[in-house]
Amino acid sequence: MRTRKSLQSKSRGRPRKLAPLSAAERMRRMRARRKAAGYREISRWVPQQITGAAYSSHRLAEARSLAMHAAMAQKIEREPPLLDIPRQNMERWRARWSDKPPPWWREWCALLQRPWPEIAALITEPSENAARLRQSSPFVGVLTDAERMRIYEAFGS
């Protein structure tokens, strides 16, 4: 004889199927659906195929620029009068741009007023802001042609 409690539990939930699929059959059907949708079964580690370059030439140029500025900072550290070169460059470029120099010129003008240790730290900093500033650096001419070419060659340029 069924109790009231057992009758209530039978009426709840999903109704039973007449011929339920086995777990293995459900898995087979799920795999077939995924295969039809274009999924591929991968049971081992497959490294992703990189079609393009994993790095950009711009990133390489940034690294080269950082190396050049580190060499420039070292050289100015040894010969402080070389710090006049960026100031002279700024003056020369200022004459070219008449009364309205580009924004980066104005930014560098303010930066060159700082004490040398601060400037050295900035031009050799591996940060995004320092990389942006190095793109328009006035320190060109501190390295000789031979020193510059050595760094270029080291970076495969």
Binding site: A61, R64, M68, N89, R96, V140
Partner: peptide, 12 residues
């Protein structure tokens, strides 16, 4: 005429 070249130094 790349970075650090005489061209760069001359023209900015």
């Amino acid at each position: 005429i790349g970075e650090g070249s005489r061209f760069h130094q001359e023209y900015g």
